[in-house]
Computed example of a mutant assay.
Amino acid sequence: MNQSVHFITLSTLDLNAARDFYVSGLGWTPLMDVPGEIVFFQIAPGTVLGLFEAGRFAADMEGGPEDARLGGVTLAHNVASPQEVDAVVDQALKAGARLVKSPARADFGGYHGHIADPNGVVWEVCHNPGWSVDEDGTVRLGPVEG
C-alpha cells in the first residue's frame, strides 16, 4: 500500500454547526457539501477533510452510535510564527471555538495552542521552526535550535 492518506473523515454530532464554523467563521471553501450528510474541504494537495454527520457516519460503517464517537485525535495547522499562532487561535475563538490550551512555548522548542471546533474536534495551531515542506511536497522535521 502506498504511504499516503487522501481523506480524513471525522464524525460530527452537529454538521450545521461544523459547516458554519469552518465556512463562515474561518473562511474555508467547501469542495463538496451534501446538506444533512457530509461536507468536504481540500486541506492540502491531494488531501481532503470530511465532516460526516454522526448518524450517517455510523450507518455507513453498519455500526451503532458508539462507532460514531471521535476520540484521541488532533489535527494540526502549522504557521510561520508564534504571533500567527496567537492570531489563528484568536480568529477561531471568535468563530466559536473553545480554548483547550492557551498558546505557549512547547517542549519541542516551538509554540502552540489547542482549540476545539463546535463538535469537539481538537486543532493544534503550531509554529514549529523544524518543520518545512519541500517543493515536491516532502515534509521535513528537523531539530529545533535553542
Rank of each mutant, 00 (worst) to 15 (best):
R98T: 15
D86R: 08
E66G: 15
V89L: 01
S102L: 15
A95S: 10
F57R: 12
P82G: 13
T47F: 09
V48D: 07
P82Q: 08
S81K: 03
V39T: 08
G55S: 10
V100W: 07
G64Q: 04
E53H: 10
V73F: 06
E66C: 05
V89I: 01
G96I: 10
A87L: 15
P82I: 02
T47K: 14
V39F: 03
A76R: 01
L49N: 05
D90W: 05
P45T: 11
N78W: 04
E66L: 05
V89P: 10
G64P: 00
K94Y: 11
A58R: 14
L70A: 12
I38H: 03
R98I: 12
A87S: 14
R69A: 01
G64N: 10
G36D: 13
P45E: 09
P45G: 04
A54N: 11
E53T: 02
A44K: 09
E53W: 00
A95K: 10
A76S: 13
V89A: 13
N78S: 04
D67P: 11
P65D: 13
G72V: 01
V85D: 03
R98W: 05
V34K: 02
H77V: 04
V34E: 13
D86N: 15
G50Q: 02
G64Y: 00
E53S: 08
G72M: 06
D60E: 10
D90E: 09
G72H: 09
A80I: 02
R69I: 11
E53D: 12
A44G: 13
G46T: 15
M61D: 05
L75Q: 11
N78M: 04
R56W: 08
L75Y: 08
K94Q: 13
D90H: 08
L75E: 10
A97C: 09
E37R: 07
D86A: 08
N78V: 02
F57P: 15
Q91A: 09
N78I: 04
E62P: 02
R56S: 05
V48Y: 01
A54H: 14
V34M: 06
E62N: 11
D86G: 14
A95L: 05
S102F: 15
I38C: 12
K101E: 15
G46Q: 11
A76I: 01
G64T: 00
E62K: 12
A76G: 03
E62F: 10
A59M: 12
L99A: 06
V39R: 00
L49R: 07
R98A: 14
V85W: 06
A59V: 07
P35E: 08
S81C: 01
A95F: 07
R98H: 11
H77F: 04
V73D: 03
L99T: 05
V73T: 07
A58V: 12
L49V: 12
G63L: 01
D60Q: 00
F41T: 01
F57V: 10
E37Q: 12
P65Y: 09
G55W: 00
K101W: 11
P35M: 03
E53N: 02
L99H: 02
G50F: 03
A44L: 07
R56T: 08
R69V: 07
G64R: 01
P65C: 08
L99Y: 08
F41P: 10
G64E: 04
R98Q: 13
F40V: 07
S102H: 12
E66R: 04
Q83H: 12
N78E: 08
A87N: 15
Q91C: 14
T47W: 05
L93P: 15
V34C: 07
T74M: 10
A87W: 06
G72W: 05
L51H: 09
A92V: 01
